[in-house]
Design a protein around this nucleic acid. Structure first.
Lengths: 243, 243
DNA sequence: CGCGTTGTTGAACGACGTCAAACGTTGTGG
DNA sequence: CCACAACGTTTGACGTCGTTCAACAACGCG
């Protein structure tokens, strides 16, 4: 009686994997816990690399800064996700990792991890699978960014968020976005107005519903409707449920 | 008097790093060489994961397929780059890796690599840095995709290609694209017509020049002009050199 | 030589961005 | 408790960048 939606190509219980990983880390190496508040950054671009951070609670975004001031949200991170992997190559973090809410991260020294891996090879497996999964996830982001129209990208964003919660064993019919329309738009490569309009259209088509209090809480009657909307956009753009 | 452009946050000689890595692999574990021809795939999505592939020569693209038939070029790979890292997480490759020209890859078994790493820890460093660099590269792709107008994206693509060649010690003033306009467009999230027009405009502004023979060979008078064009687009869109 | 593939260019359309106005929410200080 | 400001969101009108559709040109190949 697992509560978890069974997504293809994923272990049946992601909850289990995350719990196991956290336990494994805790057992095999020193861990530094750190509480962060909304807006705090776990690390910043250019800072000397030393540690990886595993999200224990809260919601985080990864922001990539270009030299000329353009900035881009390149990833969202939930419990069990790792932060700081981009720093390994150059010994300096390449992004900012920013908390979108109060949360806790576990800092582990990278060198300590490598040393511990000699005695506990499973650590290596975990690290590699994490990085590999991250690569695949970004490939999927690029696919969405490049092939989906704005409305479908927003729908895809909502489904990604609910999937992430579902995999962590939380209720999936109701989500509270920790991001402003501007942040969502940045992440999805569009303006905040487009995000707002897309959400309004999704609500009009009853794919989502706004709760009475606040437009940041979103009720999702059935996830399948979201998925259908995304796919519908690729076949016959805008033919789905809309006014 | 080094021929290599000195990009920030990168070792001075990438040529050296690549050569060292190839040598290290060759010395410490069994390698299976494999010749591929244009259009051949090194591996395909869904195929059981077992090996990583290091590009020894040629040009490769990574293609991500969605269930509903959308497809997206998510990366370009040159000598020294690794293919197959996306397969580690699920034990199945998540993309297609396709040769864009005749080339050679070195196949190494992932399990053999992990075992060899016990005696040669440098192998681990190489693997981790490679994956980390790959993550950063994709963050940069997303930044370009989301924040740059079409013309600048094409300019960025050309600069990425020339940088890759320059880092490998090849001439940088002249490049031969191994991709059709459609492939470039797919990679950059736009149509082939937009790519063609962007190239024409860049040529009109003398940022690039077409060689007399074929529109696939592109001459680049000075890379700085490309860079300036990209940055110009972010500050005052379309204010650069154009008709 | 004829034909398929690839690339270029033009014209019309449409999706999305820009600009602007109005409203709701939250927090702060009088 | 209210007034006010700062911020976030929604919605409309309008402009534009990029797509779509189409015709044509340049190769490469049988």
């Amino acid at each position: 009686m697992t509560e978890v939606t069974n997504t293809p190509n994923r272990p049946v219980s992601v909850v289990g994997r995350i719990a196991d990983t956290l336990q494994l880390l805790q057992d095999s190496m020193p861990i530094q816990r750190r509480i962060v508040r909304a807006g705090d950054s776990v690390y910043q671009v250019g800072q000397a690399f030393g540690s990886l951070y595993i999200v224990n609670s809260g919601y985080f975004k990864m922001v990539n800064l270009s030299g000329e001031g353009r900035e881009q949200v390149v990833g969202l991170y939930f419990k069990g996700d790792w932060l700081g992997l981009d720093g390994i190559a150059t010994s300096h973090y390449a992004c900012d990792a920013v908390a979108m809410d109060t949360g806790e991260v576990w800092a582990i020294r990278y060198d300590a991890l490598i040393q511990a891996a000699v005695r506990t090879p499973a650590l290596l497996t975990v690290l590699h699978e994490t990085m590999s999964r991250e690569l695949t996830r970004e490939h999927d982001s690029m696919l969405s960014l490049c092939t989906l129209p704005a409305d479908a990208r927003v729908a895809g964003f909502l489904r990604y968020w609910t999937d992430a919660l579902a995999q962590r064993g939380q209720r999936t019919d109701q989500i509270t976005l920790r991001m402003t329309r501007a942040e969502i738009g940045n992440y999805l490569g569009m303006t905040l107005e487009s995000v707002s309009r897309a959400l309004s259209r999704l609500a009009r088509g009853d794919v989502i519903r706004f709760t009475e209090k606040g437009r940041r809480d979103i009720h999702i009657p059935q996830v399948e409707a979201l998925t259908a909307f995304i796919q519908g956009a690729t076949v016959a753009p805008m033919a789905g449920a809309l006014h």
